[in-house]
């Protein structure tokens, strides 16, 4: 187990260098000149442009720029955005918002998704099952931004149940509806996945054994059925947590939440290289760590899987 973790952590180094370099190259191949865009519609003074360019190190060769960036990164310096603010500051504002939103959405997925999945899996073909199946199909087939705008319009503007946009990103109540919108798609998948595995395992021989042992139904379902059925669901949820952390550009955009997705989107639009690379780097790390966590959890849940 220890060796497995160590190996996985070591594997992260090339992945980390590779992704940052790739993002770096991509950002710098974006159209538009970030320095010139600082001046807006005004004509830029060539001397000032050159000075700024030098200040940000943009006049050096690309690989040297990358080297400077990476070596700064290892000293905990994410660099400066072109507006003069340290990227670390920007991120420390955006990440807590997204983490809150992601955790809310995640909690919603876990609780509602697994509960509905188990219920429908055990009542296959019954009304509830059919109803939920149709519902998930609808959610899966409608793009998120449609769901988002419709919810915003109905709940926020027409019935005025919620504020149309999030005013205070620390208010969990206000984040609730955006979190549900954000979770909707994955929720549908969690329900379907849980339903399938529960339905399958319900017919498994060991469930028959558990019943034959005279265990109460609660225990048959809660211990014997759930433990086995949740293994694939946990895998899905793990990767999904990484995705949610990446911020939801669409959802955050619709509800005006100043999270990671929102910040990243703005940064890409204004060719803010350091901000984009910084955020994506952190996201890559988050993703690598959650996938490691999922793998470890997988071994905990299923003893047949052993890592050496």
């Amino acid at each position: 187990m220890g060796r497995f973790v160590a190996r996985r952590l070591l594997q992260m180094i090339p992945v980390f260098i590779g992704t940052t370099l790739l993002i770096f190259l991509m950002v710098y191949s974006l159209p538009g000149d970030p320095i010139k865009s600082l001046f807006g519609p005004k004509a830029a003074d060539p001397a000032t442009v050159a000075r700024l360019r030098h200040e940000y190190g943009l006049d050096k060769p690309l690989l040297e720029q990358y080297w400077n960036y990476i070596s700064g990164l290892f000293q905990g310096d994410f660099g400066q955005s072109f507006t003069g603010r340290p990227v670390a500051d920007l991120m420390s504002e955006a990440f807590p918002v997204t983490i809150r939103l992601a955790l809310l959405a995640f909690g919603f997925e876990v609780i509602v998704g697994i509960a509905l999945g188990v219920l429908t899996g055990m009542r296959r073909g019954k009304f509830l099952d059919q109803f939920v199946l149709v519902l998930t199909l609808i959610v899966i087939s409608i793009p998120v931004f449609v769901i988002g705008y419709v919810t915003q319009f109905l709940l926020g503007l027409k019935w005025k149940v919620i504020t149309p946009t999030v005013q205070d990103s620390e208010n969990l109540g206000q984040l609730m509806i955006p979190a549900i919108v954000l979770a909707a798609l994955s929720l549908a998948y969690v329900i379907r996945l849980t339903r399938t595995t529960v339905g399958e395992n319900l017919r498994a021989d060991y469930i028959r054994t558990a019943v034959a042992k005279g265990l109460p139904r609660k225990r048959v379902v809660g211990v014997h059925l759930m433990r086995n059925s949740l293994i694939p669901v946990v895998t899905f949820l793990g990767t999904d947590l990484g995705l949610l952390m990446g911020g939801a550009i669409v959802t955050e955009g619709i509800f005006n939440i100043q999270g990671v997705g929102f910040t990243l989107f703005k940064a890409i639009q204004t060719s803010e290289g350091p901000t984009v690379v910084g955020i994506v780097t952190v996201l890559v790390l988050v993703y690598l760590l959650t996938s490691l966590l999922v793998d470890l959890l997988y071994a905990v849940l299923d003893p047949r899987i052993r890592y050496a």
């Binding site: 054994t209 034959a212 042992k213 211990v223 433990r227 086995n228």
Partner: peptide, 25 residues
């Protein structure tokens, strides 16, 4: 009936590998 199962009448199944829960010791 549940209380009889296991305590008064017990059953041994054919395929022990699939009849035992794979994730419990």
């Amino acid at each position: 009936r549940r209380k009889l199962r296991g305590s008064k009448i017990a059953m041994i199944f054919q395929d022990a590998l699939s009849s035992l829960n794979p994730v419990l010791s």
